[in-house]
């Protein structure tokens, strides 16, 4: 096949590859805008609920119990709900970034004509994504709260569900890319799909980053005197 991409014609429609690539890249921008709006919706929900602390329901119940108070509790009382640990969010972000770097490496190798490098990059990216997927699942299943434990819990669970969903789609895309490279459908002359996948993964890193920012810097609500539901009084806690 001709290595000069300007002359390579895509199968199916016979248009030049560069035309198809331009279209696909434009489509990717659209997808990023759409996902960014969705991410923004989740971040806005998180931040708004954090700032309002309606009826004192932001924090999971029991999250604000000071250590000294727990001594008064019966030893057999169930563990209280609390805020999620912050480090798992950053760890998963790190994994996604590593996967992105692996994918970029593979894509760059592909453009240099080194198909083996592409396969190495995609395979390692897939493995890292699987690890991230498992980590995300573990994080969700070991949260110290349930979905009904207030608005912080709801927002964090939605965030993590979104992360999980994105990771699932990502593994599908990465494995697909791997298969196609091995079948010879992805080559130096037909490079555009790894390219847009790499761009998409950069966006994913940003989205995961925004989530980690929320869960690290917006934890305790600033509204410490919310109105008590159904009354005209304020909570002076």
């Amino acid at each position: 096949m001709n290595d000069d991409s300007a002359q390579v014609l895509a199968p199916t429609t016979g248009e030049p590859i560069s035309t198809i690539q331009r279209r696909a890249k434009a489509g990717l921008w659209g997808l990023v805008v759409m996902d960014a709006a969705g991410t923004l919706a989740v971040v806005v929900a998180y931040a708004y609920l954090w700032s309002l602390n309606v009826n004192g329901g932001w924090a999971p119940p029991g999250a604000s119990i000071k250590p000294s108070e727990t001594d008064e509790l019966l030893p057999s009382s169930p563990p209280k709900a609390s805020f999620a640990a912050e480090w798992p969010f950053w760890m998963i972000l790190l994994l996604v970034c590593l996967s992105t770097l692996a994918m970029w490496f593979g894509y760059k190798e592909l453009k240099r004509g080194n198909n083996a490098g592409m396969i190495v990059g995609t395979t390692s990216a897939s493995i890292i994504t699987v690890i991230a997927l498992i980590a995300q699942w573990l994080q969700i299943s070991t949260f110290p709260f349930a979905a009904s434990d207030g608005s912080y819990a709801s927002a964090v669970l939605l965030l993590c569900a979104g992360n999980l969903f994105n990771l699932l789609i990502l593994i599908f895309l990465q494995l697909g890319m791997l298969t196609r490279t091995r079948k010879g459908l992805v080559t130096r002359a037909v490079w555009y799909q790894p390219q847009i996948l790499s761009y998409w993964m950069v966006w994913l890193c940003i989205a995961f980053f925004l989530g980690a920012l929320c869960t690290t810097f917006m934890v305790e609500s600033p509204n410490v005197e919310p109105a008590i539901f159904g009354t005209f009084q304020q909570d002076s806690a």
Binding site: A45, Y48, L52, N55, G57, A147, G150, S154
Partner: peptide, 24 residues
């Protein structure tokens, strides 16, 4: 999720805000 899993995005008893829904 509010309806099925009892989350509190919009349920004011548990920290949800009706204004969040209206804004979104």
């Amino acid at each position: 999720t509010d309806r099925i899993w009892d989350t509190s995005f919009f349920n004011p008893l548990q920290g949800g805000s009706v204004w969040l829904y209206e804004n979104l």
